[in-house]
Design a binder for these strands. Sequence first.
DNA 1: CCTACCGATCGGTAGG
DNA 2: CCTACCGATCGGTAGG
Lengths: 194, 194
Amino acid sequence: MEAVGNLSRKEQVIRKAAELFREKGYAASSMRDLAQMLGIEAASLYSHIKSKEEILQSLCFDMASEFRKSLQEVEKQGGDASQKLRNGIIGHIQVMAKDLIASAVFMNEHRHLSQPYLRDFLLLRINYINRFKDIIEEGMEKGEFKKNIDKKLAVMTLFSSLNWMPQWYDPKSNIVPTELGEQLADMLVNGLKK
Amino acid sequence: MEAVGNLSRKEQVIRKAAELFREKGYAASSMRDLAQMLGIEAASLYSHIKSKEEILQSLCFDMASEFRKSLQEVEKQGGDASQKLRNGIIGHIQVMAKDLIASAVFMNEHRHLSQPYLRDFLLLRINYINRFKDIIEEGMEKGEFKKNIDKKLAVMTLFSSLNWMPQWYDPKSNIVPTELGEQLADMLVNGLKK
DNA sequence: CCTACCGATCGGTAGG
DNA sequence: CCTACCGATCGGTAGG
């Protein structure tokens, strides 16, 4: 239980697992693969974690918690709908940018959670999405946003764009996460057209 | 090799497999699961298909071919960049709407293709994406689109929005695929803002 | 399309 | 953290 320089052994295991899960997918990742990446035997993993799924649970729920905190901050700040939406987008992108690997796993592998974790996870997600939906609805009602766009389509388009980011964003590129969030917000709110 | 009323037995196997792969993911889907869905023994599957992966190959490359045909049509029709982008989006959505299940598998499971299929698949995809990128670049150069949005971000946002559609679109809803494509095009080109 | 079966690999445990 | 191992399940084949 000693905390080493940077990461506890358990955290190291989870981090390596995230890399593996992102690369091969959860189901296709074996504990023997993971052990090899860490230079130990597969059986030794179980002195740090209880099961393969426990790792996935950590990754998914830790990310969910970060997203929740970010949105709460945005709601507290207030502003009009465009402003809140923009802040929400930037916050979401910043949370992902802090851990692109875990974000990708969160996005693509959460369905391999077993019950009741899966249900809890989906409840957190629907709550998060609905709070963005509320912002969009507010904007439509107050005349900031168009009313002729289907709300579900608008919010799903938003989240597709956000959540796919970990798949293509290169942190070594010259576009920094905040700037990325701002451009994304600009594109979704104002569109490509001049 | 007899073609029955609607689908050959092989096509039935592939269709059921698509449902299974979408639900559980390719790696977590067993041939025994698939056999059970069809009411036969696992070993019997192999009189219709050569391997589990052959099914994935069919699904992925058949979809890729449909997307290619659609885009070719759009390029032939011409028009300015907004028009072409709009047509491309509507075409892409229509192709997906014709088979939402295969589209979801295409999107999420292609990474489980082995070489050289994976490489070929990725080449097709990058070609397709680049042709959309060309349209966006044309629009920027001719002053139709903003120049201050990163091109890669623009095209990736576009494809995220398009490709996530099979995950949330309900074909029984009162919004029809063409309308969906048009609204999506409107949102991405003109933005949410009034 | 079935029975019978194979070698490989899986997540995980016992006991140190 | 290791050795030794377990029962379950995997994709697939042989032979009919």
